[in-house]
Every structure is written in C-alpha cells, then in structure tokens.
Computed example of a mutant assay.
Amino acid sequence: MSYENIISEEINGITTITVNRPSKLNALNIQTIEELHRAISEASKSKTCKVIILTGSGEKAFVAGADISEFANFNVEQGTRLSAKGHDILYDFIENLSTPVIAAINGFALGGGLELAMACHFRVASTNAKMGLPEVSLGVIPGYGGTQRLPQLIGKGRAMELIMTANMIDAQQALNYGLVNHVTTQEELLVFCEKLATKISQNSSVAIAAAIKAVNANFKDGVNGYNFEIEAFGKCFETQDFTEGTTAFLQKRKADFPGE
C-alpha cells in the first residue's frame, strides 16, 4: 500500500511507521491521520508483524502537533467532528490495538503529536525530545485524548499544570514524570526500540493482546478491571500459546508460540 505522508516498513516481525512530513515538522493533517490508520490497521492484520514502532522523520520532530491551517476556520460542529473522528480512527484505535505499539519520540511531540505518543502502549524518547500540550495558547483544549491520558500517565496535578501553562518539558523531565519509559541518544533511539520490540515478539502475542485489553479495562467507565482480568486469564487456558508456553517451561526449552 502506498502513502504520501508516511513510510511503513516491516523487518523481522517489526513494523516501523514513520510520519514523513519534515517540512511541516511532521504535523498531523487529516490525510496523515487517515494514512496512519490504514498503515497501523494493515500492520495489525499481518500474520508476521508482532510489534509496531511509531516515529517521525528527520532529527527535529516526532510530530509537532496538528496542522492548524486545516481547522483555523472550523465552527463548533466541524471541530467536534474533527475530534471525534481522530479519537475513533487513530488515538483510541491505537490504544486498543492488540498489537503492541511503541512511540519512538525523536524530537518535538506537541499537541496532537504528544497525544499520539500517549495513545501508544509505551514511549521511548531521545535526549533532544520536547513534549507539551500548547493548545490553550491557541484558545482550544487538547482534543485527541490529552486531557484524559496525560493525567493517567503523570497524575492530575502535573497534567493540569502542563495543560494550563502550555509549557514544554524535556526528555529527562518526561522520564521523571513517568511520561516516557526510557531516554536514549537520538542515534540509539530506533535501535533501542527495536531491541524492546524483539523481546516482546518472543512472547505470546495472544497473551500480550489479552494483557493490553485487561490493562485498558481499568480505565473504562463501568468496567471492573479485576473481573475483566479474571475472565481474560481463564480464557488463556484454552489457547495453543498457553499449551506451548507451559510445555516449553516444563521441558526446559524456549517456547515457539504459534500465536493462537
């Protein structure tokens, strides 16, 4: 499948999807959001893809926000529809994807770009990365999940401060806050993420998918995360991956999971 604003490449079970609009600091326009949806959906359906890494092209930006020129003249109805569609086809879509998605933050991750990184299952940043939600400086609020995911990741007080001041934080502060899991040099960023992805790919994809759903269940209204975990745990016992995993353990060999 061909794309205009992104690059998607699968090697050894790892699909790297790169937002490729360097002249716009990889800002997200509507077309790019739709292309990301298609590329991530295609990767998740691949029988060989085990992990997705999401990053930006160049050395300056992961995704430096949304393309403001596209919605500067929107009315209430158009703005609401823009946010709702973004949630549906990209941000919530990534968060609930059964295939793990790692954000490799290689520079500015601002506004919709930070929201994109937060929708991923976890984040790794390069030392030059800067993160923030500057929307209130434009007279709007974060509209792609920022007001919800940022407090979940770093706590309500810190999230309130970042959102209300529109300040940026650097990679080390993001690490201290728990917004990112690791910080590396820019040169080592993708290599480090690929090592993590390889480690993940060696485990049961069926169990990982169930674990993603169980963790997310705790953050959904009206869902008891513990009960969801109990049911998901029980369902693992009927999978071929469980049979292979336990058999391999008892036979003291490395498991070869069928992914079923």
Rank of each mutant, 00 (worst) to 15 (best):
G157Y: 11
G155D: 04
H182E: 15
T184I: 15
L162F: 06
G178Q: 07
A174W: 00
P142M: 13
E187T: 13
A174M: 10
A171M: 09
G139I: 04
A159C: 09
R149F: 02
P151I: 06
G145D: 05
L150G: 02
L153H: 05
G146C: 06
P142A: 07
R149H: 05
T185D: 05
Y177Q: 08
N176W: 12
G145L: 14
E161R: 10
I169P: 00
V180N: 01
Y144N: 07
V183H: 00
G146K: 04
L138W: 09
A171T: 13
L150V: 09
I154S: 04
I141R: 09
R158W: 12
L153Y: 08
Q152F: 04
G145Q: 00
L138P: 04
R158V: 14
V183N: 01
K156E: 12
G155L: 08
I154G: 00
T185L: 13
Q152L: 12
L138S: 03
E161C: 10
L162V: 13
G143D: 06
L153I: 14
T147N: 08
T147K: 11
A166S: 10
D170E: 12
D170H: 01
L162W: 07
G178L: 13
V140H: 02
L150K: 01
P151W: 02
G155K: 01
Q186C: 14
L179H: 05
T185F: 01
A171D: 06
M160Q: 15
E161G: 11
R158N: 11
E187Y: 08
R149I: 15
G143A: 15
A159K: 08
Q173N: 04
A171Y: 01
I163R: 01
M164Q: 12
I169K: 02
R149Y: 03
P151S: 05
G143H: 03
A166D: 03
T184V: 11
G139N: 02
L175Q: 08
P151F: 07
A174H: 05
E187C: 12
L162C: 09
R149W: 04
Y144E: 12
Q148K: 11
L138D: 03
P151N: 04
Y177I: 14
L175V: 12
